[in-house]
Each structure stands twice: as C-alpha cells, then as structure tokens.
C-alpha cells in the first residue's frame, strides 16, 4: 500500500523532525510513502479563526492536491480532524478525499491493525490526549496502545489528562493570559506525573507545551508520537 503524507504546514516549517519520524515509521512497516509537493495547509487555522473564505479555498486545494492518493496520513490530530469533519461541509466535492485521510495512530491501529511498530525507547512517558484527536477525531486509545507496545516505554498517568493544554491556535496569542494559565495547569500535571517526556499526536500543541516546559527550565521534553515510534 502507498500512503501520501500530509505533513502539515506547521510540522513542515517548524517541526520537520516529526515529519521525518512519520516517514521512518511508515517505511519500516513496508508502506510506500509519497509526498505530494504541492501541499501547503489544510485551512484549519483560517477556519478556526473565522476566515471561512480562505478556509474554503484551502479545503478545495487540499482535495485537489491529494485527489489521487489512496490513503492520506498526517501526524496531526487537529489537521486530520479538520479535514475529516469540516472539509466535506466546506467543499462537498472533495468529501471522498477527506474520508481517506487519517491521523497517524488512527491509520496504524484502526486501519492497518498494527500496534507494535518495531521501535524501542528508554524512558518514562506521559501521554497528553490533544483535544481534537480526542473529541473531534475520536482516536480513542490508539496512541496509548501504540506506546504500550514499545519496549522500554514506561507509561505514567497524566492527571486531568483530557483538560485542554491551552493552545487553540490563534487563541494562544489572542488570549495569551488564559492560554498561559491553562498551560501552567498542564505543565503542573506533567510534572506531577513524574515522566521525563510528554507525548502527543499534534505538533502544534507540543510546540506550546514544549515551549512552556523550556521556559520553565523543566528537564521534561515534549515528543511527538511519531518520534517515539520511530526510535
């Protein structure tokens, strides 16, 4: 099977390691990976911010760029959620493309039935279920099942795990004070989990959480699920 990688504009530009890790995981499982170079952004940022015209144009563009792909995979719960849940409403003619789009853990566990991807890791991880993977996409426990299957991963429970980290795209700058307060609560929870790294399925939330950990001078690292699975 060949899969087309939708790396997301954010990972492409600011967290390329996440995209490279996703490629490693997919190829290790024997999948052929394509990267349609025309891809840019799915329009989630514009949609959430209230710019429906731009979001609609980008949704249509996404549908065209990935029209020929058998399966589309993205290492982002929120982009996958946007593509699957909103894009078909915005541009009905690309609904079939949206339906073939999967978040990485969803593709591995639900679609391919794989839990052990043959990676190893050494350390104590805590998993933060990002809001859109949890509530929009409903990936369930797929990411945790993948993590549990990795030898060397010790999974620590995250208190109040389903509470939003406070990122929310533009929310993080438009409502910086509240976003920062939500982040502080999340960082406290991460610290109390005793983990040495926090793992999630979204590079955007991790940018925010990781940036907060670093600002605090915390030794805890923020790692993407793909990076753990690529190890």
């Amino acid at each position: 099977m060949r899969v087309a990688l939708f790396v997301t504009c954010l990972a492409d530009t600011l967290a390329p390691g996440v995209g490279r890790a996703a490629v490693t995981v997919l190829e290790r499982l024997g999948l052929g990976v394509d990267f349609p170079r025309e891809q840019t952004c799915c329009g989630q940022l514009h949609w959430n911010a209230g710019y429906a015209d731009e979001a609609t144009a980008l949704a249509a563009r996404f549908g065209e760029v990935f029209a020929d792909a058998e399966v589309i995979v993205t290492p982002s719960g929120s982009c996958a959620g946007h593509v699957r849940e909103h894009v078909p409403t915005l541009v009905p003619r690309v609904a079939h493309v949206a339906a073939r789009t999967f978040e990485l853990s969803q593709l591995l566990v639900e679609r391919l039935g794989v839990e052990d991807v043959g990676s190893t890791y050494a350390g104590r991880l805590t998993y933060h279920p990002t809001c859109h993977s949890l509530r929009l996409l409903r990936v369930g426990d797929a990411p945790e099942r993948l993590l549990r299957a990795v030898p060397g991963v010790e999974l620590a429970e995250l208190p109040e795990a389903t509470e939003c980290c406070g990122f929310g795209g533009m929310f993080s700058v438009k409502n910086a004070a509240v976003s920062s307060a939500m982040l502080a609560a999340k960082l406290d929870a991460i610290a109390s989990s005793g983990a040495d790294a926090v793992c999630a399925c979204d590079a955007s939330c991790l940018l925010h959480i990781g940036g907060g950990l670093e600002r605090r001078g915390s030794p805890v690292r923020a790692v993407h699920l793909a990076e753990v699975l690529a190890g």
Partner: peptide, 10 residues
C-alpha cells in the same frame, strides 16, 4: 508578545 509571555519558540 503574547506567545513569548510564557513560551519559547523554536
């Protein structure tokens, strides 16, 4: 500025 109030940015 809002981002930088509590977060680093790569």
């Amino acid at each position: 500025a809002g981002w930088g109030s509590s977060r680093e940015l790569p």
